[in-house]
């Protein structure tokens, strides 16, 4: 079980958090302009890699804030945590 550093509350047990899938997938501004394939790309396609993955997490049993997390799925090492809207750190 991880210890996650919530950017608003500090270090907490993983059980307080919920994972929300891949990060940096922006909802299209004009969905109606998209073809079925383009929409499907947004809707369904998610990475599931062994290695460094960008994820969304929420401090569900805490401040309820969403944030981004960079995690190596092969060893669960958390490489970075940053707020929503912020860019991932260049060096990981």
């Amino acid at each position: 079980m991880f210890v996650i550093h919530c950017p608003y509350c500090g270090k907490r047990e993983q059980s307080e958090f919920k994972a929300g899938g891949e990060a940096h997938i922006v909802r299209p501004k004009q969905p109606t302009e998209l073809s079925d394939d383009q929409w499907a790309e947004y809707l369904f396609m998610r990475k599931n890699i062994k290695g460094v993955q960008f994820e969304r997490w929420v401090h569900a049993h805490g401040c309820r804030k969403w944030f981004n997390m960079v995690r190596d799925t092969s060893n669960d090492e958390i490489k970075a945590i940053y707020k929503m809207g912020e860019k991932p750190p260049r060096k990981l």
Partner: peptide, 13 residues
């Protein structure tokens, strides 16, 4: 509530 918060915080801040 969780879903609405999600959209509010991440898509439509």
């Amino acid at each position: 509530l969780g879903k609405l918060e999600d959209y509010l915080q991440t898509e439509w801040p």
